[in-house]
Write a protein that binds this DNA or RNA. Sequence first.
RNA 1: CGGGGUGUGGCGCAGUUGGCUAGCGCGUGCGGUUUGGGACCGCAAGGUCGAAGGUUCGAGUCCUUUCACCCCGACCA
Length: 415
Amino acid sequence: MKSSQLFTRTRKQAPADETAKNAQLLIRAGFVHKEMAGVYTFLPLGKRVLENVIQIIREEMNAIGGNEISLTALQQKDVWEASGRWSDDVMDVWFRTTLANGTELGLAPTHEEPLTALMKNFIDSYKDLPSYPYQFQIKFRNELRSKSGLMRGREFTMKDLYSFSKDRAEHEAFYEKCAAAYKVIFDRLGIGDITYRTFASGGSFSKFSDEFQTVSPVGEDTIFIHEGKGIALNQEVYTDEVMKDLGIDKNDLVEKTAVEVGNIFTLGTKFSDALDLNYAAEDGTKQPVFMGSYGIGPSRLVGLLAEHFADDRGLVWPENIAPFKVYLAPLGDSVEVTTEAEKLYEQLTKKGIEVLYDDRNVRPGEKFADADLMGIPYRIVISEKTLASSVYEYKGRTDTDAQMLSHTELIAKFV
RNA sequence: CGGGGUGUGGCGCAGUUGGCUAGCGCGUGCGGUUUGGGACCGCAAGGUCGAAGGUUCGAGUCCUUUCACCCCGACCA
């Protein structure tokens, strides 16, 4: 893409009402726009990053048998009444609205109920199980207080997968498979080394659940990490009893703040019982479907990644989630430089390399500052100087010095 | 929801004890000089001071109400 086609622009200063680093950087670099507290629009660059994160998650969910769907944001009251969660006393984050005829609706805070009801159309027999539908969908939660930029919004993107299994054993096998897939996802996102599978309370679903917590100074949760085992305990289950159950010595735990980037719950038959989702077993008996739910928040992850991968000049995206791989900056507007830049832009683009070509006629410093702020992994400079020596200047975002490369050497960097 | 704080051109800010046509920087447009780390000169457009009400000869400055936003806490992915 050419910079001239990108409608956003960078700014030197962040808005005064944003104190969260992730939101400040993402807004300054033109990745997101704040619509209201806890509600952010994704602009072209931010949308690309979000899609890259989503794609990684999608690939890993498909790899364990996920079937991608898209459930609706408008939800019917009756399915929620069936599970007893329509009440504000049970779910205090509801956004509600009504149809013109007065029918009450909810704006999806999560999707267990509607999906369980939906699956009644497709699950009748043990032959229909297991099943793993999932989606990337906007969730609405009427938080009393949104905060920390993209980390805690009132509207956010969530990947939610739900497992429908015959029994606990089949469920547990998948549960572990999904936990393993999550590990791969966080590794691919570059935060595997600071993300811990964390033992946590099961909330309203079961006694315990597993969270995936990424260590971060902006974290809202406190966790206790056992480096040796590579796991952690959420503060809410930091009790002698739990530690004894897990065979963990309190002295081996290190306290850190962390951000919950994913979670997996065993739902059991809570929703299948409430909504009558049953199947005929091999022996002909009627059995409730055994369920689980598995969430990851891609938009929250974008905020976390922005917060984590940054330095004093701006964002520093890992290659696989950056909005573009290369920032191509011709300096000056001479015909020779422009012609060479156009040529290289075509060549790289044809090779499938995503290039942000800064075709604006602005001074070098502005191009460099923007390249750094946006966090594009590689920068290629073409100028009168480089042309005179028949080289290209190539520099990684975090490199101190640039390298002068021949055309062949440059292209070799991108195979 | 409890506590604290902030609202002045697109963004960041200044506006003394109420007093003249509300300023500055960035950004934007035009002209020119520039071109290896957000350059410089000139000209220009753009705000009625979050909103409503009130006090006053006079309100961005004072009072009341209200809305929005930020932070801490509680709650939550």
